[in-house]
Amino acid sequence: MVKLRDAAQAYKALNGLICVYKPPCVPLRRVQHTVITNLCRDLNALPDRLLESRVEIVGATNEPMSVRLVQNYADHRLASGPRYLHEDFRCSWAAHLGLFSSGVLLLGINDGTRLTYKINTSRLIRAYKIHGQLGKATDTYFWNGKTIERATYNHITREKIDSVVAHMQAAHQKTMYELSGVHMESETAYELASRGVIRPSNGKLPVLYGIKCVHFQPPNFTLEVQAINEYDRYLWTLVHDLGVQLKTAAHCAGVQCVRHGKFHTDLALLRKHWTLEHLLENMQQCQELLDDNQRLLRPETAMLTA
């Protein structure tokens, strides 16, 4: 655990990237506000710097006067208020997580906001666990939507799901190469893939790199998806489309981000650990991870010409 001597030392160390676990049904602004509030609370609880002194000159003006230092009550915390406020911090996230999504969230504190910008522009691959349920379709493709269809699912087996999922992955991979203007079986396609992960030049074009079923217990199932430029409704639509291809109905029951680049859930701090000491320790771990992976923010990858 990081040892803190005083609040000033701790505040100077709060420049970097932290990895937290965003709970479901909690907006990003609330996560951001909670982290900064906890930092202010813990910093204000630490020993503060020495209070400033005030020079006081006493004595009659027609006689030798004495000069002394006395306590400056204007610098006292009871008069000036808390030393650290929300306005003293800058905080931004590297990638957006929807209201109903949970999982790995990267936040930049103060100078760490530059790192979140680099991560956002680098468009690192994110991995998700998408929980779905068979037998019901909704108008929003999510569990809280209005039910528009019900269907049986007794004919669905693990083999059928694996077959459809493999077909969906192959279709997305084919689309990636079609957008790049080369044939999948050509030498150019091989050279394109050997240079690294193919990323779309359009930052708004969702691209799937992998999708598979990791859990199946009717009516519940879980898909593991690796994607770039994805968003909540797009992931919900995947579950709905899977149900259509299986000749049944399905809706998304939850979305969990389990990895963002090299940052996994084992590094993400739970809400109970959003304290100054844990966040500083987590910041050091994130920096070590970035140092060990110098190319993390400078991926040499092929770009799709969307």
Rank of each mutant, 00 (worst) to 15 (best):
Q133V: 08
S201N: 12
T237S: 11
H131Q: 12
T152C: 05
P218G: 02
F216D: 04
S194Q: 13
T138P: 00
V165N: 06
N144Y: 12
I156H: 00
H155I: 09
E159L: 07
Y231V: 03
A170H: 11
G181D: 12
A193S: 11
R199P: 05
Y190M: 12
A151V: 03
V225N: 04
E191A: 10
F142D: 15
Q173R: 10
M184Y: 14
K136N: 05
W143F: 14
V207C: 11
G243C: 01
H183P: 00
R150L: 05
V214E: 04
K204F: 14
A166T: 11
D241K: 15
A170Y: 11
Y231K: 04
T140A: 02
G243K: 04
L235Q: 05
A151L: 03
F221V: 05
Q226F: 11
P218N: 11
L238S: 00
T138D: 07
K212R: 13
A193E: 14
V244R: 15
K136F: 12
T138E: 05
G210K: 15
N144K: 13
A189P: 04
I211W: 03
A189N: 05
W143E: 12
E159P: 01
I148Q: 08
A227Q: 07
V165C: 01
A189C: 10
A171Y: 14
V207D: 04
H183M: 11
T140P: 04
Y177G: 00
S186P: 06
